[in-house]
Nucleic acid binder design. Structure first.
Length: 937
RNA sequence: GCGCGCUUAGCUCAGUGGUAGAGCACUUCCUUCACACGGAAGGGGUCGCAGGUUCAAAUCCUGCAGCGCGCACCA
């Protein structure tokens, strides 16, 4: 057994054991195993991502669950992988290529070339986050590493698309979608973040026209808008049909300034007469509500903003080519010049921003693919009746609300990095076919295949309803090309359209693989509540739709990691510490422990490096406590002899039992921070601070003069081994590296059966609470808790006496103990040791010199005789203060017990408790009074 | 507007009916042979406010306030 160093040095230890685990294939899941299955699929991090503290929290929890399940004898599959993360990765690659001067815009190099670069990027950076997870200690089955664009995975995505299309759930349509002008793609509703913003409300005057279409001199309709630049695309002004102020207006026309165009005034219920002026400008092509009104009133659509956010030719030559924000200024300026700006008000409203590129999104009318969600009803029910349990439970409400208001999902993206839509269009027919009957521009698919961006300045309502989805001559929905002359849809699918298949597509679906049979549905999912709609809800629906069963039984929602000021971690704030640096400084175990200790279920975590420091200190404490055991020498002591157990031994065994029970409950409720706090308290405050210190009395070498000392010493070592071997196992899920090192260092590895070709704590049995037989055999009566607590209490008080007397902590002094009953010699040894006393004399009839400091405890009086240094006044003051406190406690207890309602209605055990408490305080009061009288008298 | 969460020691948070707790920070003492990444002893809280239920409320109920987060088409 090699000697353990004084301070724990994690770096070498961590690498050594991780390699060991990998070499022994400890993390590899065997689908043929007879053991019960436990499985988790990792929330796949972005393939180009870097480990951040969110990953640390999330993956530490998964690792804790996986490691505990392994110790409980389960066959564990923790399936890892990465996500291609469409928009994010494409943006990163584009940025890199621009920086390297390879291109200015992706169109410069074309799709093929771009994808080559993107794959090269993925190959170069894709493994990084995996290595980082390994540094953290994650026990994933790396032999099953998956990527959402693996060939097999891509086939799953296409198959799912084709199936849903055949079921009529996927359709193509021209819709008003959320357009990201920076990434130049459509987004789903979930990818738009509403941000409250201070803006202005501009009141614009549109001149009314007379019956002949001539502008009236002084009659206007006044509209209020937050986006004046869109007025260039107005096609109407709307009022509420029941608004008496504007009763005469519907049916008349007004002049759209700048464009000098006559537009109708229409009546529509959508208009809220109480808001603004009660007149709404209608811009059908650039606002979802206006678009809906346009459909109702058969208005034309004028596209004035291009997909890149610039104004189109249709905006008029003064504005064409301007950025939308520049155009806003120009329009306001022009209207002001013409006297048509009535007023400007400050106005706070919500603006939608792209979650990825952080620019305001633009409502944009375009051809997209949509999905009507499948299995909505069974998915909603699964969470509502608890088939899938959310932790904390409150998120199920958020889930239900979303599921009940679910809207079709825009799944197509105008990007290149991703799964290409498996739809094929007939080029021949597009180009007019062999006979040239169909000129391309008239073809309903013309826009689909036209080079982007392709704003259509005048789209008539009539051709929006065109539906070619079912025409097999024009369109085929299948994975492979139907042959020459067919061209694939240029769009790719939303990243989440592949992620939602993760729990089963990673296990070999559509084949009914052994892995799928053994490990699906998975046991637990650990993820953030921010992707409850993006990912969790969709996985549930996909699970029901394609597997006929829920994908997981429990979902644990982590909190969001914030800095200690409560701000979100962000690169620009520079408040996001690098976990790898933290690991290098403090060790992975320290980072894991610190994070878990400060992360309560369902609440955000305010991260402070102090927590990691605490974890490091704790590891060091664990290290040294084991080092202490090692320094006592002797082999691992197996058997504990019941007859040789003293009260302290029984006390710590009972405390261990209590800790195991608390940890079991904490795990059952997914309260990992409680588990770590229990472990911390048990190990540091109970085991190290009290038990180990007290045990030194029986371990002391000089005790060997007594022939009975050696067996007692061996028995104490056996208790130390028992407690430590349990403690290390309890800690292992949280602190995998240090526990493995100590497990071997203390020689416990030899005691465990050979597993997986090597001895490791990984498969050591998970501790269970002590059973009845054990408790009976070792005589672990619960009363030892109180008995020993009383012994510790008098020691604390004695130490307090030393403090109050201003004795230096190192100075050996003599105490006199006046016991209330019999005193075992063992206890005197312990008292002497823990009080750092020269001696503790027992004298039942002790008459202290006046002014001798004394404390009163249940076990008796403890005097601290100080020859010639007695300060009577100080001692009197101390005793008086104590007496005052005691009187207050007595008053409190009396008040309750004097209340007849209390004595009549309180349950007996509570009544008894209070009576006992009162009696104890009274006894103590009498003793303190006696001491005080003796001092004064 | 609707929903959810939070409000307890200087700071960050546990505690969900029966004597107010932890970590950090603070004060004093100590390098005594596991650990100064340590030990010992302390100081510090009318548990956001107001009502109610109860023998008993930090804890349950109602209302209010402040902070945070979701969702929602008010131009």
């Amino acid at each position: 057994m090699a000697e353990i160093s004084k301070a724990y040095e994690p770096q070498a230890v961590e690498e050594k054991w991780y390699d060991f685990w990998l070499k022994q294939n400890c993390f590899t899941a065997d689908p043929k195993s007879p053991k019960p299955a436990y499985s988790i699929v990792i929330p796949p991090p972005n393939v180009t991502g870097m480990l951040h503290l969110g990953h640390v929290l999330n993956n530490t929890i998964q690792d804790i669950l996986a490691r505990k399940a392994r110790m409980e004898g389960k066959e564990v599959l923790w399936l890892p992988g990465t996500d291609h993360a469409g928009i994010a990765t494409q943006a990163v690659v584009e940025r890199a290529l621009r920086k390297e001067g390879v291109m200015k815009h992706r169109e410069d190099i074309g799709r093929e070339k771009f994808l080559e670069f993107a794959w090269a990027w993925k190959e170069k950076h894709g493994g990084l986050i995996i290595q980082q997870l390994q540094k953290l200690g994650c026990s994933c089955d790396w032999s099953r590493l998956r990527f959402t664009m693996d060939p097999a995975y891509s086939q799953c995505v296409q198959k799912v698309f084709v199936e849903l299309y055949k079921k009529g759930l996927i359709y193509r349509g021209k819709r008003m979608v959320n357009w990201d002008p920076a990434a130049q793609t459509a987004l789903s509703d979930e990818e738009v973040e509403m941000t409250e913003e201070k803006g202005q409300l501009w009141h614009l005057k549109y001149p009314l026209l007379d019956a002949k279409g001539k502008p009236l001199a002084n009659e206007f309709v006044v509209v209020a808008t937050t986006r004046p630049e869109t007025m260039l695309g107005d096609e109407a002004v709307a009022v509420n049909p029941n608004d008496p102020r504007y009763a005469g207006l519907p049916g008349r026309r007004c002049l759209l300034p700048l464009q000098n165009k006559s537009i109708p005034i229409i009546a529509d219920d959508f208009v809220d007469p109480k808001f603004g002026t009660g007149c709404v400008k209608v811009t059908p092509a650039h606002d979802p509500n206006d678009y809906a009104m346009a459909l109702r009133h058969n208005l034309p659509l004028t596209v004035i903003i291009a997909p890149n956010g610039d104004m189109t030719a249709a905006a008029g030559e003064d504005f064409a080519g301007l950025d939308r924000m520049e155009a806003r200024k120009a329009v306001v300026e022009e209207l002001t010049g013409q006297g048509l700006l009535l007023k400007v008000e400050d106005y706070t409203h919500n603006v939608g921003y792209s979650q990825r590129s952080h620019v305001p999104i633009e409502p944009y009318l375009s051809e997209q693919w949509f999905l009507k969600y499948p299995s909505v009803e069974s998915s909603t029910r699964a969470v509502e009746d608890g088939g899938i349990a959310f932790h904390p439970e409150r998120w199920s409400k958020t889930y239900s609300h979303w599921m009940q208001n679910i809207k079709d999902w825009c799944i197509s993206r105008q990007l290149w990095w991703g799964h290409r839509v498996p739809v094929w269009y007939n080029r021949w027919s597009l180009e007019g076919g062999p006979g040239g009957k169909n000129p391309p521009e008239a073809h309903p698919l013309a826009e689909k295949l036209a080079p982007r961006p392709s704003p259509d300045p005048q789209v008539s309502i009539a051709n929006l309803s065109s539906d070619v989805n079912s025409n097999q001559d024009l369109i085929r929905v299948q994975s492979d090309s139907p042959g020459p002359g067919w061209e694939q849809d240029p769009d790719v699918l939303d990243t989440w359209f592949s992620s939602w298949l993760w729990p089963f597509a990673t296990m070999g679906w559509p084949e009914q693989t052994d892995t799928l049979k053994k490990f699906y549905p998975t046991s637990d999912l650990v993820t953030g509540p921010d992707i409850i709609f993006f990912w969790v809800a969709r996985m549930i629906m996909a699970g029901f739709e394609f597997m006929g069963e829920l994908p997981f039984r429990n979902v644990y929602f982590t909190g969001i990691i914030r800095d200690k000021l409560g701000r979100k971690m962000s690169k620009s704030l520079g408040n996001s510490p690098d976990p790898l640096e933290l690991i290098a400084t403090y060790g992975a175990d320290a980072l894991r422990f610190g994070t878990m200790r400060s992360a309560p279920l369902g609440q955000d975590v305010l991260f402070d490096e102090k927590d990691v420091e605490l974890g490091r200190n704790f590891c060091n404490k664990l290290w040294n406590a084991c080092r202490f055991r090692q320094m006592q020498g002797g082999e691992v002591q197996g058997e504990i002899v019941p007859e040789l157990l003293n009260g302290y031994d029984k006390w710590i065994l009972l405390k261990l039992d209590q800790a195991i029970r608390e940890i079991t409950t904490a795990f059952a409720e997914y309260r990992f921070n409680e588990a770590t706090q229990t472990l911390y308290r048990f190990f540091w405050s109970e085991y190290c601070d009290w038990y180990v210190e007290a045990s030194k009395a029986s371990l002391a070498p000089k005790a060997s003069a007594d022939p009975a000392a050696e067996p007692r010493r061996a028995n104490t070592l056996a208790v130390l081994d028992f407690v430590l071997s349990h403690t290390l196992r309890l800690f292992h899920p949280f602190l995998p590296f240090i526990t493995e090192e100590l497990w071997h260092g203390l020689g416990y590895a030899q005691d465990m059966p050979q597993q997986q070709g090597g001895q490791t704590i990984l498969f050591a049995p998970w501790p269970k609470a002590l059973d009845q037989d054990f408790v009976a055999h070792y005589g672990l009566d619960a009363c030892y808790l109180d008995i020993v607590n009383a012994k510790f209490e008098i020691i604390t008080q004695g130490r307090n006496l030393r403090r109050e007397a201003n004795l230096p902590a190192g100075k050996k002094v003599k105490f006199v103990f006046k016991p209330a009953g019999a005193v075992p010699p063992q206890d005197l040894e312990v008292m002497k040791l823990l009080l750092n006393a020269e001696a503790v004399e027992v004298d039942p009839n002790y008459q202290p010199p006046k002014g001798t400091p004394v404390v009163h405890a249940a076990l008796g009086e403890l005097h601290l005789p100080l020859e010639g240094q007695v300060d009577k006044a100080a001692e009197a003051a101390r005793l008086s203060k104590e007496l005052k406190n005691i009187e207050a406690e007595i008053a409190k207890a009396r008040q309750k017990l004097d209340n007849p309602n209390f004595t009549a209605k309180a349950p007996p055990h509570v009544l008894q408790e209070h009576q006992q408490r009162l009696a104890e305080w009274q006894t103590k009061r009498d003793r303190v009074k006696a001491s005080l009288d003796a001092l004064n008298g």
